[in-house]
Design a protein around this nucleic acid. Sequence first.
DNA 1: TGTCTAATGGCAGAGACTGTCATAAGTTCG
DNA 2: CGAACTTATGACAGTCTCTGCCATTAGACA
Lengths: 228, 228
Amino acid sequence: MAVQLTDTTQPDQVLGLRERKKRRTRDALVEAAHQLFLEQGYARTTVDEIAAAVDVSQRTFFRYFANKDEVALAILADAEDHFVANLRERPADENPLRALRRAIVLTWRELGTARHDRPSSITAALELIQLIESTPTLLAAHLRRITEQEQIVAGILAEREGLDPATDLRPRVMAAVFGGVLRSAHLSWSAENESTETENSGSEAMINLIERHFDQLGPALAGDWHGR
Amino acid sequence: MAVQLTDTTQPDQVLGLRERKKRRTRDALVEAAHQLFLEQGYARTTVDEIAAAVDVSQRTFFRYFANKDEVALAILADAEDHFVANLRERPADENPLRALRRAIVLTWRELGTARHDRPSSITAALELIQLIESTPTLLAAHLRRITEQEQIVAGILAEREGLDPATDLRPRVMAAVFGGVLRSAHLSWSAENESTETENSGSEAMINLIERHFDQLGPALAGDWHGR
DNA sequence: TGTCTAATGGCAGAGACTGTCATAAGTTCG
DNA sequence: CGAACTTATGACAGTCTCTGCCATTAGACA
C-alpha cells in the first residue's frame, strides 16, 4: 500500500525516531491530562502539572496544544474523524438524515468494539463527555468544535446530494439539526450518568440514547404533541 | 402595578442613587467595550483599556462582569430575555415549532422598531453577532450561553404542553433543533455581511434569513432532497 | 449627624499563553 | 562515521485575565 517514493512522501507506518517520539509525548500529554482532569477537575489542574507529569517544560506543552482545552478535547477528536469518514462512506441512496444517523451509531459502535489503539477509547470518551458537561469552559470549547464539524458535515451532505452549498440551505440546516440532536443526547447521557463513576457505561447505552433522540425528531416537529 | 411595601420590595422605577450609579457604570462598560471590540478586535482589547475608558479600576470591572466574554455578550442578553418572555406569551393552541418561530421573529422585530432604551439596540446586536462569528473565543462563550437558553426553552415547551420534561424527550429535541436552525441563520447572516460595515443591516434582513432557514426545516428532514 | 452597609481602588499573586534565544537531539549526506 | 543542517526543547521574561484581601470612600438609614 504505502508506496515508497523519493522522500517527499512520508510512509504511513515507518516514521523516523523524531516523529515517533513526538507522537509518544503527545499521547502521554493527552493521557496525563485526562487522568489529572478526572482526579482533580479541569480548573484545578494546571498546565504545569500536566507538563511535569510527562516531564516536559510548560513551553513544550504549548507547542503541542494551543491551549488547555485542546488536550482535554483531543480524545474526542479521534472519534470525530471517524465519524466524518463513516459519513463519507455511506451509500448514496440513503437519505441524508438516515446517513447521519447510521454514521454516528456506527462510529460509537466501532469505538466500543475495535480495540482502537489505546485500550479503552470509549471509556475515555464517555468520561470526557461527562467532564465536558460539568465544566463550563470545556463545554464552550467543545461546542465551538462541534459547530466547526457541522460545517464539514454540511459540506459532505451538499456534495452527496450534488447541491450548491452556497444556495441551498438544506445541508446546513440538516447539519445544525443533527448537531442539536446529538448534543441533546449527550446531555441526557451525562445527566443519567451523573453519579461519579461510569456505571451504565458501554457505548451501547449512548447509542441507545442517540437512537431514542433521533426517534423523537419526527414527533417533536409534528404539529400536535398531544397526538401521542 | 408596583405595590409599595415596607422596604423589602424595591420599586421598579424609583431606584436609589446607588443603584442608578451602578446601572450607569455597567451600561458604560458594555458600550465602551463594544466600541473598542469593533475598533480593534476582541483579542487586541484589554480589560484595562475598557476599564480606563469608563474610568474605573480593573478590579471594579470584574465585579460587574465575571469575565471579558460577558461584557461583549451582554448586548445579546437583553434580546434573549425578550425572546423568553415572548415565547411565554405565545397562545397555547400554537404548536411548539410555530410558537418558537413567531417568538424569535417577534423579538427581532421589537428590537428593530421599539427604541428600546439605547438608541440602536439592533445595530449593536447585529454588529455583535458578526464579531462573535469572527472571534473563536467569543463564539465558544456564546454557544455555551445559547445551550443554556435551550434548556430554558425546553422547560417552557414542556410546561406549555403539560409534559414531564424528565420523561419526554420532545421538548429537549425541539429546543436543540430550534437552536441549530437559529445558529445556522446567524452564520448565514454574518457570512453575507462579512464586508466590514453593516450595509444590508436592519433587522428585516435577519428576520428574512431566519424565516428562510425555518422554511428549509421540513424539506431538509424529508427523505428525498432531489424531490424539489 | 452618626452609624451601617455596600461599592470601589490598589495591591499582590496565580495561572494561561507568547516571543525569543540558546542548547540538545534527530536527520542527511559526503 | 562525522560534519553540516534542521528541528524539538528548555529556560526566561513578559503580558493578560482573573481572584483574594484590605483599606477607603460614598450612599442609605434612623
